[in-house]
């Protein structure tokens, strides 16, 4: 195991025109870690993930992946290096079938056998998906779409998986299932950065977490520490 973190942000800034949404944040993820980024609506969490994945340009600071700067690397090449994002709102291709959506995840892979094997693994993890392979993805329920989105990301065999609010708009039972899936992905050694508004769930779930507020990281610690922090409890856990 190398000591270089898999992902490192140093004073990273992201702006929409003149408005800076991420005002210089620093964080890092070691190989195999499950880290979450929590905070209120509009704190800059999604912006951060989008910048890491390359669908938003950075406005300053450093973005290191496996120790190398990737600030100017286009999104499609970041994926080829093992960096996958499940975007906010899932980003399902609604007009493609479920199977086609999943195969888009494996777009860059040439190992047909490996892809078929990974498809089978996704099916065992997400049995609901298998029943609906030939269905147009836009007709799935929100929870099913989220599962397809996660399965699709897994088919790229990511080393770093970025998840943007996988619980958004889903019933508690469905959320539970999705987090089970995320846990099993993490258990396989995939490094995960999870953005969540559901702070309670995220903190219980992850090894470490960062708290983001108006474009800055204001607190960091282990999940348990933050869960016990009175400020966090007051601001995000409704106490």
């Amino acid at each position: 195991m190398s000591a270089t973190p898999l992902l490192q942000l140093r004073d990273l800034r992201v702006a929409y025109g003149a408005i800076e949404a991420v005002k210089g944040i620093s964080l890092e993820l070691a190989h195999g870690e499950l880290v979450s980024l929590i905070g209120a609506n509009g704190a800059g969490k999604t912006t951060t993930l989008n910048a890491i994945a390359g669908i938003l340009p950075t406005a300053g600071g450093e973005l290191l992946y496996e120790g190398k700067g990737i600030e100017t690397l286009p999104a499609h090449l970041r994926l080829r290096r093992g960096l996958a994002l499940v975007p906010e709102g899932r980003g399902i291709f609604t007009r493609l079938t479920v199977e086609e959506n999943l195969r888009m995840g494996a777009y860059c892979r040439r190992d047909e056998d490996g892809v078929e094997a990974d498809l089978e693994r996704v099916f065992t993890m997400l049995p609901r998906v298998k029943e609906r392979l030939q269905q147009v993805a836009g007709t799935l329920s929100g929870g099913e779409q989220q599962m397809v989105a996660i399965g699709r990301a897994l088919l790229s065999r990511p080393r770093l998986l970025l998840l943007d609010e996988p619980s958004m708009g889903l019933a508690p039972l469905v959320v539970e299932k999705i987090f089970e899936v995320i846990r099993s992905v993490a258990a396989e050694g995939v490094t995960i950065l999870l953005v969540e508004q559901n702070a309670n769930l995220a903190l219980e779930f992850s090894q470490r977490a960062y708290v983001m507020e108006s474009g800055r990281i204001t607190l960091a610690g282990t999940g348990a520490e933050l869960l016990a922090d009175p400020k966090v409890r007051a601001a995000y856990l409704g106490e």
């Binding site: 499609h76 080829r80 994002l85 086609e100 888009m104 777009y107």
Partner: peptide
Amino acid sequence: RAMRATAENHKVASLMG
């Protein structure tokens, strides 16, 4: 498939590589 995916959403298609 990539054409249809790109037609629906450029950004997400680029996230697929």
